[in-house]
Nucleic acid binder design. Sequence first.
DNA 1: ATAATAAGTGTACTTAATACACTAATTGAG
DNA 2: CTCAATTAGTGTATTAAGTACACTTATTAT
Lengths: 254, 254
Amino acid sequence: MVEQTRSGPPQERPADPAVPSSYDPGRYPRPSVTVDLVILTIQDADLRVLLVERGQSPFAGMWALPGGFVRIAESIHETARRELAEETGLAGEDIYLEQLYTFGEPERDPRTRVITVAYFALVPADVSRRLHPGTDAAAVRWFSVYQLPELAFDHAQIVDVALRRVRSKLDWTPIAFRLLPEHFTMTQLRNAYQIILHRELDKQNFSKKMLQSRIKVIEPVPNALVTGAHRPAQLYRFVEEGRYEWGATAGAQP
Amino acid sequence: MVEQTRSGPPQERPADPAVPSSYDPGRYPRPSVTVDLVILTIQDADLRVLLVERGQSPFAGMWALPGGFVRIAESIHETARRELAEETGLAGEDIYLEQLYTFGEPERDPRTRVITVAYFALVPADVSRRLHPGTDAAAVRWFSVYQLPELAFDHAQIVDVALRRVRSKLDWTPIAFRLLPEHFTMTQLRNAYQIILHRELDKQNFSKKMLQSRIKVIEPVPNALVTGAHRPAQLYRFVEEGRYEWGATAGAQP
DNA sequence: ATAATAAGTGTACTTAATACACTAATTGAG
DNA sequence: CTCAATTAGTGTATTAAGTACACTTATTAT
């Protein structure tokens, strides 16, 4: 019970007079807590994740997920937002961000005890394309999730969990739209699904499912067509959320 | 990247000679990390959660989820197991335990920064019934999740998230069996679903769904019947797991 | 014997999932 | 200018799953 009787947490704030002083600060050495991000996007018909190259030991020279420490006065969700902004330069934009899982094996960081709360982010294709692709000093690159280098720490496992979460949510929630521009053709949408699920989907059945389901998910954009060396394609847009259960899993909780 | 360059975590273990000593231990004050447990069971046709009464400020006299600090050398899953054993006395038994969500608002504990990794546990009805129902000095009681007292900290929110997770998993995974004894009648199983989902389910359609689905979930126990002041009922048992995706959500990951 | 209780079965209807083949509108090459 | 190439878009039949609803059966208690 954490905040329960049996010798509470170490004190840090000015002592609250209402709190009995029976704490034993030395008894519970505190771990470091970090947030690691699995930032996903679709580029060149591929699902990609943003990785940074480690300059320092341990795992120097290997690639790792971006992340950083939780500051003492910020919520972990704020940490995730801040890291996302720092890493991608996307400050104000509405990027989908969801808590994934907390990894806390004692030896996952060889230096000291580090518990990490992993988040995943979905960056629309058009947004990720106009990002600085590693203009910083540090090497930052998009990698295909299907061709990852060896990753530092337990980050390969974290990416794996993120992939499974995204695939599973694809069936019940409209998160695919968070990887697409505002307007998209049916083929683009189907491609996104195929890339994420890593298998083919029947064209007609896919569009039937998207369009004729009672809980309307997408709608055509009036008078919006895409032309090219082929028959013009209708543009669609995502219909507002909030009509259905957002996959009661671990959703975008506060 | 946590474990990445920019001024790493404070040191604690004997210095690793391979690690540059550019850390700034004072820069990232560390939060306390706890595990809180939502321990659920079915009793008297009701879904119940185990709560403990707080003896100390803050929230003295209020009820709270059981929980405790993550020790420096144990994984968070081990913390959850240990707390579960301490709170219920169930040491070796195979109790379902799954990570729920991590709550990290800076002010959720008024004393100091505490990040809590919430887990939920499902205790079979027959097991929870033979527990010490608060024989300890501390007051420990089962409460109906539908009639909770006011809870300390953000624990009401945690219970709410747990309920939503359990309900959602009920549709895709056989977690209901973790709340039932090894052998059970169809009516008991349906009752469990009804209690958790808080709505009625059609008798015939329920048993059809349980029995005739391709991915077989339950099977009759040969020559096992329950008698009573009514027609005898067939006993069923859960068929081994592993045949289907365990709800790729946040499942029982390592 | 019979009433009460809960177990168990059958059937028809609606809706979703899947498999599969054709038609339509544009551009670019010759 | 015609035709090939390319991608968009439509239709239909089959199978499986979900839902609604009513009757029969086997036991115990009186």
